[in-house]
Design a protein around this nucleic acid. Structure first.
Length: 558
DNA sequence: GCCCGAACTTAGCATTAGGGAT
DNA sequence: ATCCCTAATGCTAAGTTCGGGC
């Protein structure tokens, strides 16, 4: 077996069996009292159109329904589900009133929440039974959890950013749409009664158990094993080993591309400048995108004229590049960084007339060329490896400022800050939660309260010492004060942590970019319980790393 | 070489569960 | 015991990379 989970002959497994996928229940039409109004008149719909209307009704609280593209796409696809009569009548979305349907959905979910405990318990058991059957596959003799055994239900497509396909109808999947992958066709899972699978295949060079084609962009969707499966564990290890190898090679590669910044070949200048950004800023590769079909977002190689700006200090000594572009998931990337003079000069050249807004900054460069260049330094080295390397090395460096003899809370704050530095580097953002302000306020109140108690207790202690000097009481008060001081410190740390996390998401880097061996090592070294850094699921995902550090130390120091 | 589809990783948001406060 | 909030989980969209076909 090879480390990336591939068997020596390029196969992912020898034996694979599972129970297929689970489909959502068929659509249950609404009671006649719950209907749409059209032009203020009741307008009952046949089930096909009603189901799609209900999808829309379920999104009335979302911003999507205010979006012209969403509404246009929705209307077009909704019509495909209408009868001729419905189509003739319903021509204007603004005349559709879904409020009864929305209210019905709200009432439904309230009622679900309010169900008696026993009923919820029964449902839980039923769900567990389904997981027991459909949630596991046997791969080379080992029973492994499956990541996603429920096929995606129908609904309205919720693309991120200015996605041209938002609001389109995501079709309901039938067994006839789903391909099943197993090692033995004869013992393939049975499709639901009266149906057939699209196909049963025995593809042992892939890891998916089932696949289908989604109807919005025509992309493939897969059912795959969960993160704790040997296949995924080995792939994760291999990813970080590659990044670790890059650490050794990076100085050599830097030397090479720094030379190339001055190349007479425009392709090479662009290649080296792009790599400079990927190395220094951990930018994504930035492959080509079809703006007719998807949101307009960019990464490094497909940056355009309008995304980068050459700036400098007043004396002209220090050169800066300012970046401002929509990245993956349409998350804005804004950053101004000091750069080598040659890089700054290059960008000025790449932006020279006749180039203008809309034009590619690196017009001679495509991701495959950059990756081909990297491959010569190390097999498997691609732009993405730099991001992993950058994130992990940043964590490793930042963790060095952990207070050696601080309390666990202080050490953990240092860890959070190291994690945060990585999240900032990778531009992992999140929308500030609606309750953020209230939560901080609450913490402030709690702090004020602790401080007040502390003041009172201290005053009492002083009086007690002056007064009848009850030794027991003095002792009690001292204890109370010490306890309050610990609580105060904890709360203050937690508040700092919360405030600093307002719009920064730590989980993405923790889950995908930070070598878990560094974190496991850190816990061991600083005597911090591993559960402080990784919850149960994360510990399962990273069990390979936890096993690793029993034998190895200083994973990223060599 | 280039284009495109397949495969797999990375991403943020919505929902749910469960643990602490009352 | 219940309620409420946070943390965990679920979900699926959006990236990167690879490899096969022309």
């Amino acid at each position: 077996m090879d480390v990336d989970g591939t068997l020596a002959d390029g196969k992912k497994w020898k034996e694979l069996s599972h129970h297929g996928v689970l489909f959502p229940p068929p659509y249950a039409p609404l009671k006649p009292t719950v209907h749409m109004l059209y032009d203020d008149e009741p307008c009952p719909l046949a089930p096909a159109a009603e189901e799609v209307a209900l999808f829309y009704a379920g999104m009335m609280k979302r911003d999507y329904v205010k979006h012209a593209v969403f509404n246009k796409n929705f209307m077009a696809d909704w019509k495909t589900q209408m009868s001729a009569a419905e189509k003739a009548k319903i021509t204007d979305l603004s005349k559709c009133d879904f409020s009864k349907m929305s209210a019905y959905l709200d009432a439904n979910s309230e009622a679900r929440k309010a169900r008696p405990k026993e009923e919820k318990e029964v449902e839980k058991i039923q769900k567990a039974a389904l997981k027991e059957k459909y949630g596991f596959a046997v791969i080379d003799g080992e029973r492994c959890a499956i990541g996603n055994y429920n096929v995606e239900p129908p609904g309205l497509f919720q693309g991120r950013g200015e996605h041209p396909k938002m609001g389109k109808l995501k079709a309901r999947l039938r067994p006839e749409d789903v391909t099943i992958n197993v090692s033995d066709r004869a013992s393939a899972p049975a499709p639901p009664p009266g149906t057939k699978w699209k196909e049963v295949v025995c593809k042992d060079d892939v890891t998916w158990l089932a696949a289908w084609t989604e109807n919005i962009a025509g992309n493939s969707k897969y059912v795959m094993l969960a993160a704790d499966s040997p296949l995924k564990q080995r792939a994760d290890l291999e990813k970080y080993e590659k990044a670790r190898r890059l650490k050794v090679l990076a100085p050599k590669i830097r030397e090479a591309y720094t030379q190339m910044l001055k190349s007479t070949q425009m392709v090479d200048r662009q290649k080296s400048t792009a790599l400079y950004f990927i190395d220094r800023l951990a930018l994504r590769a930035g492959g080509e995108k079809d703006t007719e079909e998807e949101a307009d977002t960019v990464g490094c190689c497909n940056l355009r004229f309008e995304h980068v700006f050459c700036e400098q200090s007043e004396d002209g000594e220090t050169k800066y590049i300012r970046f401002d572009f929509p990245g993956k998931d349409s998350i804005r990337y804004e950053n101004t960084v000091e750069v080598a003079v040659q890089v700054w000069k290059n960008i000025r050249i790449f932006k020279k007339e006749p180039k203008g807004p809309g034009d590619q900054l690196f017009d001679r460069l495509k991701v495959p060329e950059l990756n081909a260049y990297l491959k010569d330094f190390m097999p498997g080295l691609t732009a993405k490896v730099w991001r992993t390397y950058n994130a992990s090395i940043t964590l490793q460096e930042q963790l060095k400022s952990t207070p050696v003899d601080g309390a666990v809370e202080e050490k953990f704050l240092a860890y959070q800050r190291a994690n945060r530095a990585v999240a900032v580097l990778c531009n992992h953002q999140r929308g500030a939660s609606k309750q953020h302000g209230a939560q901080v306020e609450k913490m402030d109140e709690a702090l004020t309260d602790i401080k007040k108690q502390l003041k009172e207790s201290k005053k009492k202690l002083k009086e007690e010492k002056k007064g009848d000097k009850n030794a027991k009481k003095v002792e009690q008060l001292k204890k109370k004060i010490a306890g309050l001081e610990v609580r105060e410190k904890k709360k203050e740390i937690a508040k700092v942590d919360k405030e600093e996390n307002k719009t920064i998401a730590l989980s993405t880097s923790k889950l995908n970019y930070l070598d878990p061996r560094i974190s496991a090592q850190w816990c061991k070294m600083h005597n911090v319980p591993r559960s402080k850094v990784y919850n149960k699921t994360q510990q399962t995902k990273f069990k390979w790393a936890i096993a690793f550090i029993e034998y190895e130390t200083k994973i990223w120091e060599f």
